[in-house]
Amino acid sequence: MKRLLIIEDEKELALSLESHFFNLEIETKISLNGEDGIKQYNEFKPDLVLLDINLPLKNGWEVCEYIRSKSETPIIMMTARDSELDEIHGLEIGADDYIIKPFSINVLSTKVKKILKLNSQTIYSYKNLIYTYRDEILKIDNERVSLSVREKDLLEYFIKNKNKPLSRSNIL
């Protein structure tokens, strides 16, 4: 199951998004401020972050820069700040996409599904290796291989970043 972290100080919006993505079988966590967002990011290890800019304690710019310094986890900034300069700044510091409030839940949902590749193939195969994302099953030469949680996370990270040079710090 894919994991989504929503860092949004408007509680009603955050709960609405959580409910919507729960129905798409995406595990979600909510943080209502930037400091908790960073803490949840480190503990929850999401596959995608929805990030507001105007947050208490640490703003979205700071949270985005922190996440980007640690990983390549996709980030969609969602904000009422609609200036072109804000959007450019968000993308320059590492956001993968930017959506302006109020937004269509269907548009956001499509962006999330695209980034998480929920509508694409759920099986990765290479030579004699087959990995099924949904069931988290690895088979080599058609024999099932038991994986720890860390091994599964690493395998998925390597598959997601195939053909990309990876630094030791990003892998760690």
Rank of each mutant, 00 (worst) to 15 (best):
T132L: 04
M77W: 00
I105Y: 14
L13K: 05
Q40K: 14
E84A: 10
I6T: 08
E10C: 09
L55H: 07
D141A: 06
V63T: 06
N161G: 12
I67R: 00
E151M: 09
E151L: 05
S109M: 02
V112K: 03
K117P: 07
N33S: 09
S19Y: 09
L15H: 03
N42I: 04
K113P: 00
I76N: 05
I171T: 13
Y157C: 05
S148P: 07
T110N: 04
E65P: 00
E87S: 11
K114V: 08
T122R: 13
E87A: 15
K164E: 13
I6Q: 07
N161E: 14
E151P: 05
T110F: 09
M1V: 10
R3M: 05
E156M: 13
R144C: 07
T79M: 07
I26M: 11
C64G: 02
K117T: 03
F22H: 10
Q121P: 03
I38T: 02
S16K: 11
G34C: 11
E84K: 15
S69T: 06
S120M: 05
L32C: 02
Q121A: 12
K101E: 12
E25D: 15
G94L: 01
S120G: 10
E27Q: 14
S109P: 00
S69Y: 04
I38E: 02
S109T: 14
D135E: 15
E151R: 03
K127V: 07
L91T: 04
C64V: 01
K117A: 12
L85N: 08
K29Y: 09
V112N: 11
T28N: 05
F21K: 06
L48T: 09
G94D: 02
N161C: 11
S167A: 12
K139L: 14
V145N: 14
L116P: 00
A80P: 07
N161H: 15
N161S: 12
L55Q: 03
S169A: 14
I75G: 01
L172G: 06
L55W: 01
Y131M: 09
I30W: 11
Y133F: 15
E27H: 09
G90A: 15
K39W: 12
N59V: 03
T132P: 00
L155P: 03
K111T: 13
P56C: 11
L91F: 02
L13D: 05
K160N: 15
G60F: 00
S104P: 01
Y41A: 00
G90F: 01
K2D: 11
M78Y: 10
E65K: 01
K114D: 11
N54C: 05
L155K: 09
E143M: 04
A14W: 05
V107E: 13
N170A: 15
M78T: 13
N54K: 10
I7Y: 02
K152W: 03
W61P: 01
Y126H: 15
D135Q: 14
K139V: 06
